[in-house]
Amino acid sequence: MLSERQEGELGARLKEFEGRAAAVAGVGKDPVNAPMIRHWCEAMGDTCPAYTGPGAIAPPTMLQAWTMAGLAGQAGPPGRTEAFGELLALLDAAGCTSVVATDCEQEYARPLRPGDVVTFDTVIESVSDRKTTRLGTGYFVTTRTDVRVGTELAGTHRFRILKYAPTAGKSRENTPKHRRPRPVVNRDNAGFWEGVARGRLLIQRCTGCGTLRHPWLPGCNACGCLEWDTVEAGGGGTVFSYVVMHHPPFPAFDPPYAVALVELAEGVRMVGNVVGVPYDKVRIGMPVEAEFRRYGTDAGDEGDGDGPFVLPVFRAREGS
């Protein structure tokens, strides 16, 4: 990881690349030609008649393909400058070794036809500040390429890549199954979790004024009394409010899923997953019934030494 100061220095160095050339007077490896057009159309399933026969044009979206280095061009596209290589090397050295294309904006000034020899110049338009993305932390690099035939502009192509350091253990298939987080049990709420482990939902009751409370707290919000006992909830309740979790995905959870604030029949509210209905069928006012699910019993969940645990969930009641 970079320190804040190193990160600032890197950011400043990266900014110096803005406006510099990434490719100068590159020449397409092949003139625009019918076989490459045909292969493209076959791959895309594109049967547009404008791309075949006499007077054919190349599919406009092929613009970038004519500038690509291909298999032989490990050093990058024709005409690539040292500056662009330096920029990529600087990012590699900072751990941003992976690359993914995120944006492509093309404008077409004139059609390309078989026989056209394509030349191009690319400029580094911008290098972003350090960004944290779903894939990892890195920098967006935006380039603009002007594609010409002779002196005539055929099109411009703005391309944005993310150079990033992949998040460790990103691949879900290659990493061990993530364990569901355990509840945080402390001396204030231990009684609640002991109840859950035995399949009982216990609500705290102030012995001073009789007010029920949840979550568990040392004292009563109504009268300040520190003495309490418990009553067991019947388990019935209704969805008071809910959210559907789409993003970000947490390991061990499989979005989208609904998280509800359930108002128990006794009047206190409790957070939990709603089960038994698809996430998009959860509604405010929906009747639910508490039940208890055991976690940490899968083979992949073994080995943390803490054993399985139980969480309350809320099942949508039939006919709701």
Partner: peptide, 20 residues
């Protein structure tokens, strides 16, 4: 090896499909 579960479509193909 690069952290992707499988191969994935490149942006040029997506671009071509949108044009099509």
């Amino acid at each position: 090896a690069k952290g992707s579960p499988d191969v994935f479509m490149n942006i040029l193909t997506t671009n071509g499909l949108v044009g099509r």
